[in-house]
């Protein structure tokens, strides 16, 4: 038995997710909210990897592993980012993009 879901449907989901992330990335000012948007975008790409792998190259596993590693790296990135954000907060008491200008030349 097979599922009759067109590949495009998956892709539409990921696209919407992706551009929600983009929108969030542009409009948010809170660093954590920015990070959340980034997570959305990452997720969207991960979905794409998996979907293309599954639909177009069912015999292989590259997409799958890409997603896997993507998740791992996203985790790493988040950990570091959050550490930085907390540090920033500790130093400037703000985590809004407009206020963090100390490192600008």
């Amino acid at each position: 038995m097979e599922i009759e879901i067109h590949v495009i449907h998956y892709l539409v989901i990921s696209t919407v997710m992706m551009f929600c992330g983009v929108y969030g990335f542009f409009t948010r000012k809170n660093l954590l909210a920015l990070l959340i948007s980034v997570e959305l975008m990452l997720n969207a790409t991960n979905i794409n990897f998996a979907v293309f792998n599954r639909y177009l190259f069912p015999g292989q596993l590259e997409g799958h592993f890409f997603s896997l590693f993507g998740i791992a790296i996203a985790a790493a990135e988040t950990a570091v980012a959050i550490a930085i954000i907390i540090n920033v907060y500790r130093n400037v008491k703000h985590i809004l993009t407009d206020d963090i200008t100390d490192l600008k030349g």
């Binding site: 038995m1 009759e4 067109h6 495009i8 539409v12 992706m18 551009f19 069912p58």
Partner: peptide, 20 residues
């Protein structure tokens, strides 16, 4: 988003089925 969707739609993916 529109552009990506347009590309997706016009790309003409075959309706591959995957085993459940």
């Amino acid at each position: 988003a529109g552009l990506v969707l347009f590309l997706l739609v016009t790309n003409g993916f075959a309706l591959n089925l995957i085993p459940q």
